[in-house]
Design a protein around this nucleic acid. Structure first.
Lengths: 255, 255
DNA sequence: GAGTGGTCTAGACCACCAG
DNA sequence: TGGTGGTCTAGACCACTCG
């Protein structure tokens, strides 16, 4: 008595839901528009709220939605392209639109992995904290590790910490004339302090960019920058940014 | 009557759990070791299974754990560095260890976003499917879009589809002498077909690398490659890969 | 068939934001 | 103060792997 099998592919509910919502976003909603709340949406689709949330989480991960506690769920704008390749690193945090803003500076022992890249031991290094803004939005938080030996001429007159000190370290580093860099990108989750700077909850997905700066045959500095994965598209390469993200995702999802 | 506030930071349980588990992984487990099952772990920590799973999901996202249905949860090895910067793209899918393996080739209309980058209309393009292996593990799946106009000398003798056709398109593309490339990286979730190739569930987090290849002043091809975000660290840059990931994460988490 | 992780439910309470 | 998303619970069943 073979049961007729019914070719039920058994697609998970949240997956199907995500597809439906994605199509609805394309056709029925404008960027910035507020969606119905989770309880209503769940009821409307006849699923538990947890299941609905699973679909929303995926869409947020893909940069389609933005959720804020106490406010609601809105349709996110397309991801912004953020250049990370430029050789002319904005060490001074100038007045350009895509600048890093120095926030603070401390002298601490580097994490062991960073120390290994720097070739230093456990002696303290300068740790410069910077925030990157784009269009008035914080998109990245960075910790820049600079061994004292890289910036020997750092004036003792400058403040021992704070923004002034940070700018001084960056200035000295800039004068070194860095020769090249080595970079890697991986997925991570935001530490509590980074999450706060980026206006996200702890654990939010981030793209961790680790950069090693060379000068005079050695590693002069190491940067660990965390970019908001929901809103950012990291761009590399010689020419300008490529300007497509949102549409592409729609296409990819559709197939 | 000010309530004494008690400085209860109200750290979520799953966040604390994640920290505890992370430390346990560092001290008490070896790579590849199997953890107790989720029901036991949840009982041991006195939380619901769903809460325990939230912590495990984060750790998997960070590449610390690997979970397989019907098998169990194991301690993941450090992420592998995968180079994506090399100019000498392995068009032919050679016999080197880090090669792309051509799988298939079809002639289809490109998604609109891809068509926009190519500057083509709706006419069909060659779509080459490739898989990238590292250490015997599939780490990336790619769709390479090549307009027919880019490879005019493509022999009609070659098969109209399949691996043979794929290799023929790659060979012709290689002969063009590509001049440069433009690249972007963003977070995405695996489509069903990519997930299957990568041995992951649909929706698994992936790093989507979009590359635009130039030749003779135009865009000769566009590649959309999806890398497993859990196991891969994408490396760019002039020199070799930087060899740190796992330890670094431990350090970052600890602070 | 036994055991694993994956999905789903129907509740509850909390932290946060705005009017 | 009311409404939102964020966290958490205690169950249930399913899909998958393996011996």
């Amino acid at each position: 008595m073979g049961t007729t099998q019914l070719e039920s592919v058994q697609e998970p509910k949240y997956w199907h839901l995500k597809t439906v919502l994605s199509e609805a976003l394309d056709s029925d909603f404008a960027v910035g528009e507020i969606l119905p709340n989770e309880r209503d949406l769940a009821a409307r689709f006849g699923v538990a709220r947890a299941t609905l949330r699973q679909a929303l989480e995926q869409l947020e991960l893909e940069g389609r939605l933005q959720r804020r506690r106490g406010v609601g769920t809105t349709v996110a704008p397309p991801r912004v392209g953020v250049a990370v390749s430029t050789a002319q690193h904005e060490w001074t945090g100038g007045v350009t639109g895509e600048a890093w803003q120095p926030v603070d500076c401390a002298s601490e022992a580097a994490p062991s992995a960073v120390a290994a890249m720097l070739g230093t031991g456990t002696e303290p290094v300068h740790v410069v904290r910077r925030i990157r803004d784009t269009h008035g939005q914080a998109v990245a938080a960075e910790l820049l590790y600079v061994p004292a030996s890289s910036v020997p001429d750092l004036s003792a007159i400058d403040a021992p910490s704070g923004t002034v000190r940070a700018r001084a370290v960056l200035r000295e580093l800039h004068r070194l004339g860095l020769e090249g860099q080595d970079r890697s990108v991986e997925l991570g989750s935001a530490r509590a302090d980074d999450a706060k700077e980026l206006d996200r909850l702890p654990g939010a997905p981030v793209l961790v960019v680790t950069t090693r700066y060379f000068a005079a045959g050695g590693t002069a500095a190491v940067s660990i920058a965390t970019y908001r994965a929901d809103t950012c598209r990291l761009t590399f390469g010689d020419s300008g940014a490529l300007e497509i993200s949102h549409d592409e995702q729609q296409e990819r999802q559709a197939s």
